[in-house]
């Protein structure tokens, strides 16, 4: 088991290999569908507008050598303070068109989600020294207990609770490296093997 403290260096990320079990501590930010589309359209395809500069700076500082968590949490508000109630990962593949650009632009060192991502992200992980980390899908109560503090939230009104940028402090957040910075993807390996078995199965079924 490897412990990762955020922010994390490119060197430390390069040491990780697929299959490594990690515990992550530090500050990260949640971002999913609306958030990724926003990052691309407002900060990557063009420069931030003057009124967006503050948000851009805040996000840049948490993203640099930091991690993005693909998560749409259940959040309780008690006495003006937010608390994560349920916060497992959401399916990452939907962010495939965006993620490589986000990694490049902001210097993100890790993407946490579920289900893995495609070749474009794998290539970006290799080129810009980042990794994809898999958390257990559906393990929402357990993972929410690793969120020790909700520091801030951006775009909550615009995107709604599940899709906002939640800046959170985590302690001993469990994940497994499934795509490393050397071009390896556990997801590709498993899919290739299962497809061979599948082709064999349908040949046998067709023959009766």
């Amino acid at each position: 088991m490897t412990r990762l403290e955020l922010p994390v260096s490119a060197e430390k990320i390069s040491e990780l290999k697929t299959g490594d079990v990690v515990k992550i501590s530090g500050v990260m930010v949640t971002a999913r569908d609306a958030a990724h589309k926003f990052l691309i359209e407002h900060f990557i395809e063009r420069s931030p507008a003057p009124e967006e500069k503050d948000l851009y700076d805040k996000l840049s500082s948490v993203l640099k050598d930091g991690m993005i968590y693909h998560c749409g949490p259940v959040v309780a508000e008690e006495n003006g303070k937010y608390r994560f109630v349920a916060a497992g990962p959401t399916t990452s593949s939907r962010e495939e068109p965006y993620e490589s650009h986000v990694i490049e632009k902001f210097g993100v060192r890790g993407i946490i989600g579920k289900g893995g991502m495609g070749d474009q992200t794998l290539e970006a992980c290799k080129k810009f020294k980042s990794v994809y980390l898999h958390a257990v899908g559906g393990a929402a109560s357990l993972l929410a207990n690793s969120v020790v503090d909700v520091i801030d939230v951006y775009m909550k009104e615009e995107f709604g609770v599940p899709e906002a940028f939640w800046v959170i402090r985590v302690k001993d957040f469990d994940a497994v490296v499934t795509m490393d910075s050397h071009g390896n993807s556990l997801h590709k390996t498993i899919a290739k093997a299962s497809s061979e078995i599948f082709n064999d199965l349908i040949r046998k079924i067709s023959k009766g």
Binding site: G72, A86, T90, G138, A140, L142, A144, N145
Partner: peptide, 22 residues
């Protein structure tokens, strides 16, 4: 993975919090 899932089932029931955020 299955250990984590089992632990999550136990915790969700105890805390009365959603098994999955979705």
């Amino acid at each position: 993975v299955l250990n984590v899932i089992k632990e999550n089932i136990r915790i969700s029931r105890e805390q009365s919090t959603p098994l999955c955020q979705d």
